[in-house]
């Protein structure tokens, strides 16, 4: 079943359109930076963007910081919101279930498919950003490596390792989004409803994070530790928020998958 879902994902034109759209923004940013040579003022703009001007190899990180807060969650919410509600709306859900495909198995297959989409998107964004970054913005000195946020130097291997960790962390954050959207997809009749519901949760979370009165709630908000991947580039690495972020996302994944499972496996399919 997982293979079938992957095949459907890869063969869908929408998958590639979405990836292309997500990829377009950081590429545009790189082109603009290369032409104008104007970085954001220090302390403003997405992380790493100011450092990119001197070292294009850092651009994958800047690209990640650009797409992570908004573009990627929207794409994930739409894709995962589509998962069950979309099949239900197209009428294909009932034919899957009477093949028969177990409902739990279907849910897992959908999650794997959404996650593969995320991995694919993140890798495509990182790869194009690396190519675009080194072509347009130039390479830093490869032999000396790069500078960590704390002002120490990082070897190229270390930078690569930390970048991979950051990518993995971003993917995990998106897994949390996918779990929420998947749950809503089993509840809502319409895929758009599920996607918008997920975005509403994320926007509410972002707003509550800026509110001091919501202090007690903040450690539990899904977007609380999203930007903690920046901590991976401090020296020594600040694991505190990253670890909490990982645990929190796992909690979201487990809870919402369980809720999705409880709802979907006992639901009357009446589309």
């Amino acid at each position: 079943m997982i293979l079938v879902e992957l095949r459907k994902m890869v063969r869908s034109r929408r998958t590639w359109t979405t990836i292309l759209l997500i990829d377009a923004l950081p590429t545009l940013v790189a082109v603009l930076l290369a032409i104008t040579d104007l970085g954001p003022r220090p302390g403003q703009g997405p992380a790493f963007l100011s450092a990119v001007l001197t070292d294009g190899t850092l651009f994958p990180l800047a690209a990640l910081a650009i797409v992570l807060p908004l573009f990627l969650p929207i794409a994930v919410a739409i894709t995962a919101g589509e998962a069950i509600a979309g099949e239900s709306q197209a009428g294909t859900l009932r034919y899957m279930l009477i093949r028969p495909v177990g409902r739990t198995r279907l849910l897992v297959a959908k999650l794997v498919s959404v996650m593969s989409f995320v991995v694919l998107t993140v890798l495509v964004v990182a790869a194009t950003a690396y190519v675009v970054g080194t072509l347009l913005l130039g390479k830093g000195d490869v032999t000396t490596g790069s500078t960590s946020i704390s002002g120490t130097s990082l070897s190229t291997q270390e930078l690569l390792l930390r970048t991979l960790l950051a990518l993995a962390y971003a993917m995990l954050c998106m897994l949390g989004v996918a779990a929420i959207a998947l749950f809503l997809s089993t509840v809502s009749e319409s895929p758009l409803g599920a996607a918008l519901g997920t975005l509403a949760v994320l926007i509410a979370s972002t707003i509550l994070l800026t509110l001091d009165a919501a202090n007690a709630l903040q450690p539990w908000l899904p977007t609380r530790y999203w930007l903690a991947f920046v901590d991976l580039f401090r020296d020594p690495i600040l694991w505190r928020d990253v670890v909490r972020g990982v645990l929190l996302q796992l909690v979201y994944v487990v809870v919402f998958l369980a809720a999705g499972w409880a709802n979907f496996t006992t639901k009357d399919i009446t589309d």
Binding site: P42, G43, A47, F48, I149, S150, G151, L227, L238
Partner: peptide, 11 residues
């Protein structure tokens, strides 16, 4: 002493 900022730090 590092002062941690969202996307940087001042040490």
């Amino acid at each position: 002493v590092d002062k941690l900022l969202v996307s940087g730090e001042t040490d």
